[in-house]
Design a binder for these strands. Structure first.
Lengths: 202, 202
DNA sequence: GGCGAAGTTAGTCAGCTGTTCAAGACGCGC
DNA sequence: GCGCGTCTTGAACAGCTGACTAACTTCGCC
């Protein structure tokens, strides 16, 4: 068996942690299970990371980074409604691609909420803020009021999260694909009415 | 200190379990913590319940029952759109009333999903089915096709779950109240278009 | 050959888990 | 008062699992 660099190992551990968190939950994500999933020795984990907490910090960053990635690369030339649709679709496709990623994300959000206080709400909050930024970017030449941006971001988040929960629960890919379209049409219809009186949005 | 009946104690333990699950997660919901929350001795728990599993079965029933309660008492004379709106509002108000109930429910759903196989998806599935039944009831005199009912139930569930996640994360009651109205308007606009070509629905 | 990075084995030890038991305290009919 | 069944408790049990580590071996490169 070939030797693997620490950097690669770290990445393996992060991916393994996501899988284990999805399957066993945060509390069930033990060092043993993560090591096993990464096909590495338990001691290897502590060779790459000083502590479990350090690994989890990286997992956190990984998930937040993935959201940033998905939400950032929206077409800059699209209008507000198109951008919103793209954001929603992007997130849902990302969930659909990996049910484990979706599950781990929800697990992390729940877990973060429990550690009330400090920076508990980071994953959810960061994703929402990234979405807001993208929406603002789509209206840079004709600014839309902050409240509207907030509302659109909220609806996108709600529809995406609701989608994730259903998809995770049933694991039915074909149903999820249809529900993705429904979610998009729900967003579209609302946006049409919500932005209807504001010609600047289109 | 007055003596308390076993029946009352059981009820106390169930409520305590919901609180503890919301705060510490399913895996963190230990017998000790639940007993403490219920202001009872640890041995008392095993005096009322043979095992922790027995208690959790009751917690499960309690949550499912609450959903049934909320979803069942919708106005039988309302049309489909009104019924849908009432269902969504009912669930969101129920969540808003107790953030811990909302948190515990999501925790239970996540947990149930992990026990893949058998009846893991019960809470989510039962709630969805109850909603479908209520929707069907609203169209008993002019039946709507099953697919439409399914889609409406899905959108209600998604909006309610997305609402719950946001409300749980931020714990901002005034924001949640506004988001409740947004969710309702999102549902309404979609329903108008979705059912627009079907005069029987109104 | 030597040296450092990668990998392993076999633990340590603390903490917490669900559960039980023996014993005591209350309340109520007699 | 006396029983008696229903509550209530502190203390313990036995076992598991958690994160983490020290000491050792192997690989690959200069």
């Amino acid at each position: 068996m070939p030797r693997i660099s620490v950097a690669q190992r770290r990445s393996d551990f992060i991916n393994a942690a996501v899988e284990v968190i999805a399957v066993y939950g945060i509390e069930g994500a033990t060092t043993r299970r993560i090591a096993e999933q990464a096909q590495a020795n338990l001691a290897m984990l502590h060779y790459c990371y000083d502590s479990k907490e350090d690994l989890f910090a990286d997992v956190y960053d990984f998930v937040a980074g993935k959201f940033r990635e998905v939400l950032k690369d929206s077409d800059p030339h699209a209008n507000l409604a198109d951008t919103a649709r793209q954001l929603l679709r992007g997130v849902m496709e990302c969930y659909l691609e990996s049910a484990n990623f979706a599950a781990a994300t929800l697990e992390l959000i729940s877990w973060a909420r429990r550690q009330h206080g400090d920076r508990g709400i980071a994953v959810y909050d960061q994703a929402l803020e990234t979405a807001r930024t993208a929406l603002r970017g789509a209206t840079s030449d004709h600014p839309v009021d902050a409240e509207t941006i907030d509302q659109i971001a909220y609806v996108i988040a709600a529809l995406a999260d609701g989608f994730a929960l259903n998809w995770m629960t049933y694991g039915d890919r074909s149903a999820a694909t249809e529900q993705m379209e429904i979610a998009v049409s729900v967003l579209e219809n609302w946006l049409t009415v919500r932005l209807g009186s504001s010609p600047a949005a289109l």
